[in-house]
Design a protein around this nucleic acid. Structure first.
Length: 383
RNA sequence: GCCGCCAUCGUCUAGGGGACUAGGACGCCGCCCUCUCACGGCGGAAACCGGGGUUCGAAUCCCCGUGGCGGUACCA
């Protein structure tokens, strides 16, 4: 039985817990909630406290109950990633295990819970390492063997500050909203503070489960790098079938009929959000970007654009192949560079100089819409 | 203050005394591909925190320093 710290116990609001579980669910990670309810656990905690009191391991001090700590001794914690860590008791005073009102404190509650639940491995953030000797002392006073501990390096934000768990669920939510795929996030996070070997980067969940080992967990904190996540997400996006991606995007945007657009934008996307910036022009007309317009609609652009219009008007059938043939024919006839024809067309249909492939885009728009957008551009250029 | 953890390219990391001229990935730069942007391919710049030891030999082991982080609560 493995316990993964941590869902805050008493201090967690239901909404908070809800968020965390929601994040785990989105990441497609399994979990077992265990006995969350403090109310349920309370009798066991009180039992442990009175045992500690009866056996002289703890005493009352101004109402609160404190555990006795032998000032001469030391407590060693055996940690799966850091080895044996020794804590001289000179740095640990008798500590409170129960408040004056009898309610248990974290270090006691967690130790008793671990014991009752038969926990064998406690895996949690490094921020708990210094608390561990206290939990071990509680367990020892109770005559129990402490579980194995593994303290993982903290995750830092780009600012170098720790990515707190209390905001952790929120940031997983942010990643989802920003258009990252759960499998990419899962894969990326696995690589923070751990690696299978010196070069493996992409791993399925099965491979992760199969290959994970605590002895390859690193000891130093890791900074979350969104650039790398974007790259990885792009790779996962391109592995999706066009059908599946269309389904995801149609649901995300609450629209139908995005298939063609998805087909030609997929290879350029890094996040789901990128889709709209890349392909919005295929769905609705965009305003002309002034910079792009000035750059492309220079001398002779009107002639080249009208020639392209003529060719497209006669292209039959209006698919990618014949569009390409028509446009390349114009290039040849005019004896100009390909881009001198393609870029004006691109600006005419998309409003800007950056877009997916021109032949696919024109074909996807259809003849009528394409010609009408070109006419609009022509009018504007002549005005 | 005291206790503890950590320290390799900008970032994630490999490395466990000689295989290190320090490897891979993201990002960056250049070239190729090319209708733009991407994708892809090729190439490049880029790091062992500092000082002492130990050793024939140290990125690797030890000590000190420095820096970052955590704990030291009738918080979790």
């Amino acid at each position: 039985m493995l316990r993964i710290e941590d869902t805050d116990r008493e201090r967690s609001t239901p909404a908070n817990v809800e968020q965390i579980l929601d994040a785990l669910h989105w990441l497609e990670l399994d979990w077992d909630e265990g006995p969350f309810s403090q109310a349920e656990r309370r009798p066991r905690h009180e039992e442990a406290i009175s045992r500690l009191l009866d056996e002289g391991h703890a005493y009352r001090d101004e109402g609160a109950v404190r555990l006795r700590v032998d000032p001469e001794g030391e407590t060693a914690v055996s940690d799966e990633v850091r080895g044996e860590v020794r804590f001289p008791h000179s740095g640990i005073k008798d500590f409170v295990v129960a408040r004056s009102d009898g309610s248990p404190l974290y270090n006691l509650a967690v130790a008793v819970d671990d014991l009752d639940m038969g926990i064998t491995h406690v895996v949690r953030g490094e921020d708990h390492l210094s608390n561990t000797p206290r939990q071990v002392m509680v367990l020892e006073a109770l005559g129990a063997e402490p579980p194995a501990y593994a303290h993982l390096p903290l995750l830092l934000g780009p600012d170098g500050k720790k990515l707190s768990k209390r905001h952790g669920a929120a940031s997983v939510q942010e990643l989802r909203d920003a258009g990252y795929l759960p499998e990419a996030v899962r894969n990326y996070i696995a690589l923070l503070g751990w690696g299978l070997d010196e070069s493996t980067t992409f791993m399925t969940t099965e491979e992760l489960v199969e290959g994970f080992s605590l002895d390859r967990v690193s000891k130093s904190p890791a900074v979350f790098d969104e650039q790398k996540l974007r790259w990885m997400n792009g790779r996962y996006l391109r592995e999706l079938s066009a059908e599946r991606l269309t389904e995801i995007l149609e649901q995300r945007h609450g629209r139908e009929g995005l298939g063609d657009a998805v087909g030609i934008a997929q290879e350029k996307m890094q996040t789901l959000d990128d889709f709209w910036t890349l392909a919005a022009f295929l769905v609705e007309r965009q305003d002309f970007d002034e910079g792009a317009w000035d750059k492309v609609m220079s001398d002779g652009a009107v002639e080249r654009l009208s020639a392209a219009r003529e060719a497209l008007a006669g292209a039959e059938p209006f698919d990618t192949e014949s569009v390409e043939a028509a446009l390349r024919g114009v290039v040849e006839r005019l004896g100009v560079k390909p881009k001198e024809v393609f870029q004006p067309v691109r600006v005419a249909i998309s409003g800007t100089t950056v877009s997916p492939g021109i032949f696919e885009s024109v074909a996807a728009l259809g003849r009528d819409e394409t010609l009408s957008r070109i006419d609009l551009a022509l009018d504007r250029a002549r005005a």
